[in-house]
Design a protein around this nucleic acid. Structure first.
Lengths: 336, 336
DNA sequence: CCCCAGTGTGAAATCGTTCTCAACGCATGA
DNA sequence: TCATGCGTTGAGAACGATTTCACACTGGGG
């Protein structure tokens, strides 16, 4: 079917090794190079990457395992990773785990079988604790989620700081009874919850954090139930864009006026968050930077394998919008 | 580093061929199978996919070339494709072209080099005309965009029908001066424009279609300029979710009341379209079906290579929202 | 007792590259 | 004249699997 290097060699009247050199960067005479190029064009030859990888023992492939590409955070990250990879002449294998530890294990095996050059991974909480650097034949960079062991290069947001910042912001605007919805499957959710709790405590307020599955409908259900309780919160913080969607939908369904009856703030500055009424206050994550930094850490690690591991902590940007406008305390009986 | 099949064979006390058979589905005694499995576990052996692909001449890989994974349509499609692929024991190589014909060519070469089993491709208008089935060593399924030649299996929306449907809907609601913004780089944009023009003509109305680059800012700019013109349209139809974003943003910036001063309708039922005020009328595309159908066509083609090509035309669903509520004609001097 | 079919096994070829090594031609310098 | 070295080339050995082929063993039927 497809021509191989032998066909090219025959047509060019040179040996296979010479063709290989001509196509690579070996020393060949200009004359031969011309002939080989002509033969390549004539035969439509394209090198077989499997053969090349097998022989050279370099896959030029990096793995990218994320929870769900439909989460806009991961969409943007993967785009950045791919761009960087292709620019470096590498390919990307993208896998979605759906936060399922079994699929994580499956895909880690796959990466091993592909003999990837490196892996960028956003593991669930369930697997992250068991990861050991020495179990991998290639460097691993964690993204969005950090392992306690510190064995891996990592790119994360300053999750605690960002959460605390949101709490500060709400308190400053006059809110006191502030609840939080956080993802239960990732360390990121946990960290953001911790930041929220710390922030609340710092203000002498009682935290009320609830952990849920990282899906928009889960957030909507949780919010609906919560807002039906007697002691309804004045504000709710959520830990990602999907929850923002669910929470906003719940508020809408209950006909709550935002921020008068419920203030909303969260993570991920998605395109729609400033188009809804009111616009939503969010922590914007530097998504492209996540991808680029992860690739940078990976390449750095490949260059200097024994260097101490590094954690790049990126900070988010608070974008204040109308969903957290100053609370008018009139309707509350309690004093400040 | 990693153990290979030879190591396993040595440890299990059998030949390499027997190991291969034991791991595959060849006939081996239960005894040997046990030993091999033990040896695999002990050595941590994982087959080398490059070697396997080279020898077996089956890459078990399908290529997926889309314009931009950040476009929610392609996000959903790619998720569906991946799920189907992994379920069939195949991997996916995902590439983003950014609607750049050069990158399309680059990635088509890459697919050839990877010796993919099949390709799912959403090409730009610039390349789609030049595609010839015989130039590929593997089946190609076009998705979202159709080639005139009919040489390829294809999954598309009934673009003309859907566009005309939007026009009908708007006319029914009392709108007459209806403009349209369409993507210039894809046949889909062209088809939707054609459906719009046909729909307008059918109602005896004068179409005004403008073709722009498939990016949200382009739509915003175009809309801002358009709405500043003397003869401002009563309604604008757009051909995808990114344009919807741009158009809505433009209307917002101009402080236009929707639908009183400008009605809006378009394609792609993105999560936010029913959260903004007013909710946006859209044609919903069965995105998961796109991915699944494309995979189905691909597998079908692999099974029966010479069967005539098929085009699966999916129909969209009109979701009526407040952005196209009935026009009150009071403010217009012209008679209907 | 022989033949045959079926089962299980190993040796060796093969996939398409890259890479090592030896060798060639030719110019240069001793 | 001969050794040295450089630039260029080809033969052939890998890489790690699958697959073909031949063969040994078993048991059943003639």
């Amino acid at each position: 079917m497809t021509a191989n290097i032998k066909d090219v060699a025959r047509l060019a009247g040179v040996s296979v090794s010479t063709v290989s050199r001509a196509l690579g960067k070996g020393p060949v005479s200009a004359e031969v190079r011309r002939q080989v190029e002509a033969a390549v064009k004539a035969t439509g030859y394209r090198p077989n990457l499997s053969a090349r990888r097998l022989r050279s023992q370099r896959s030029q492939t990096i793995g990218l395992i994320v929870a769900d590409i439909r989460n806009p955070f991961f969409t943007a990250v993967s785009r950045a990773v791919e761009d960087a990879a292709y620019r470096a002449g590498m390919r990307v294998i993208l896998c979605n785990t759906g936060e399922d530890p079994e699929r994580e294990a499956l895909y880690m095996r796959l990466m091993q079988e592909e003999r990837v050059t490196g892996l960028i991974f956003a593991p669930t909480r369930a697997t992250i604790g068991g990861l050991r650097a020495q179990d991998f034949d290639y460097p691993v960079v964690l993204i969005d989620r950090a392992a306690a062991s510190g064995e891996f290069d990592t790119v994360v947001l300053d999750n605690r700081g960002a959460s605390a910042r949101l709490v500060d912001h709400l308190v400053e605007r006059g809110y006191r009874r502030i609840g939080g919805l956080f993802g239960s499957t990732s360390t990121t959710g946990i960290e953001r919850e911790a930041g929220y709790v710390a922030g609340m405590s710092a203000h002498g307020l009682i935290p009320d954090a609830r952990m849920i599955a990282p899906l928009a409908p889960a957030a909507e259900d949780a919010a609906l139930a919560w807002l039906a309780e007697a002691e309804r919160p004045e504000a709710i913080i959520v830990s990602n864009g999907l929850f923002l969607l669910g929470l906003f939908r719940a508020a809408r369904r209950l006909g709550l006026s935002i921020p008068r009856e419920l203030a909303i703030a969260g993570f991920d500055n998605e395109a729609w968050t400033d188009l809804v009424e009111p616009g939503l206050t969010v922590i914007e994550q530097p998504v492209e930077t996540f991808g680029r930094e992860a690739m940078a850490l990976l390449f750095q690690r490949l260059k200097t394998p024994t260097a101490p591991t590094r954690t790049v902590m990126l900070s988010g940007t608070l974008i204040e919008r109308a969903s957290t406008h100053a609370l008018t305390r009139a309707r509350f009986k309690e004093p400040l």
